[in-house]
Simulated assay, not measured.
Amino acid sequence: MAKLIYQSLALAFLFSLFLSPSSAHYKSQEASNLPIDFKGSFNQVFAFGDSYTDTGNAKFLGGFNFSGDTKNIPLEWLKNIKHGKDPASRMSNGLLVVDFLCKSLSLPTLTPYKDPSANFSVGANFAIAGSTSLPSDYFLGKNLSSLIWKGVPKNFQTQIEWFNNFLTKSGCQGKNTASCKVQMQDSLFWIGEMGVNDYTRAHGSSVSLQWLSEMSVRTVCKLLKTLLTAGAKYIVVQGLPPVGCLPMDISMCPLHKLNKMGCAAAVNSAIMIHNQILQRNLEKLRKMNPKCTIVYADYWNAFLTILTNPKKYQIEEPFKACCGSSGTQLNFNSHSLCGSPGTSVCKDPSKHISWDGIHLTEAMYKHVTDLFLNQGFCRPSFADLIKSKKSM
């Protein structure tokens, strides 16, 4: 399988163009973008999403289905969390997209909402690792897999409830509705990856992927409408990356169902449908809210840009996990996850896209953030959002 993957890299760029008809858009936009200083643009950021955005909520909830610990992971790969929080709060070897976003705005990293010592002066992170779009009770009695979350996962409705509670008890306490909306209008809302856990749990089941895509996007839009009602004016919504190109999904996929890049074709097809439906819905919401800036962050094309040109980004292992079960082709074994006894860590995580076969390395998150913020992989561009904010 590894041989198939690496031999196919020569065809990968053409393949990504075939799947991503808007690729030319990014080349032209990148060339026309002028540098812009993001510092001081926002004083508060509010984030939502799953494990790609969660900075500690799942850990505080005790939700990880994980018997291993960090003693097998060299501390030098975990020391990047410099703000004193437990490195295990993030499902990576370091910082996430939302962390690099805050850094670009000259803000501290966001406090997870469930942190007992939370300080919400610069915003809050409501993302929960393992979150699903489908209702939590949908998983009761169903044999739908989960490698990370204990039992029934949290639904994204939980994050909506947390946000509403935040407004009432902390964010807008003592303010009337109008004053609260003004505060929200001056904040940045970042909706990270939402929906991947549904596709992962449904992998190999009888669940219709088309139906799942529609349900997942409906949940994203429900969150969006909640934020808009609260006064949100500047919102970035991430699409989903081609997770079928990560070790977990590749290892679960029969060889004959891998595409030309060596990725799980069915999973990526579902992700493409999700992204297409999401973009159509975002366009409708833009028309309904013309005074708001609603940005689509194209994770699909950003990820493929790095995957199909790894040397440009100093990536030497585009498919193999950094931390995992050595001796397997992709360094991934679903029964022996990163940190479990017998697993090992690569010498340089920055040379890998995948940290543990499921999540990305800090280096990959940093590259993706740069593509989002500075290279035109947002529509409208993140620079345009900042210009709109500064002109107010």
Rank of each mutant, 00 (worst) to 15 (best):
L14Y: 03
D356T: 12
S8T: 07
Q44D: 06
Y296D: 06
F372W: 11
F372N: 08
W162L: 13
T200F: 05
K260N: 05
G151P: 15
Q44K: 09
N301V: 05
I315Y: 00
S170P: 00
E317F: 12
G327A: 05
S104D: 14
I235T: 06
Q279D: 04
H25N: 13
L61D: 11
T229N: 13
A124C: 12
H83F: 12
A10S: 14
I315P: 02
I273F: 04
K59F: 11
N65G: 06
S67I: 15
Y138M: 12
C378I: 10
G174N: 02
S117K: 10
F18P: 01
I315H: 00
L360Y: 15
N309L: 08
F156H: 10
G56A: 06
F46I: 06
K175P: 00
L4K: 03
L4E: 13
F38D: 12
N281A: 11
A47L: 08
S388M: 07
A47R: 10
S41D: 12
M364V: 11
S187P: 07
Y234S: 11
K287P: 02
S269P: 03
G40R: 09
K284F: 09
G49K: 04
K291T: 05
N164I: 02
S251P: 04
C172R: 00
G94Q: 08
I273W: 01
S344H: 07
W149G: 04
M194N: 02
S146C: 14
D37V: 10
S388K: 07
H83M: 13
S20G: 02
K39N: 09
L61F: 07
K103L: 13
L278T: 01
M215T: 07
V98T: 07
T219W: 00
Q173P: 00
Q329P: 04
M194P: 01
K347T: 07
S344L: 09
K387V: 13
T226G: 06
R201L: 05
V345M: 10
R218E: 10
I353L: 15
K175L: 13
T177S: 08
M1D: 03
D99H: 01
I250R: 05
W300T: 01
K169H: 08
I353M: 15
S205Y: 04
F332D: 05
N281M: 10
A302S: 15
T369N: 06
S23I: 12
T328C: 10
I128R: 00
D50C: 09
S8H: 06
N155L: 01
L134Y: 09
Q375P: 04
G174A: 03
H367F: 10
L224P: 04
W162Q: 13
P35C: 09
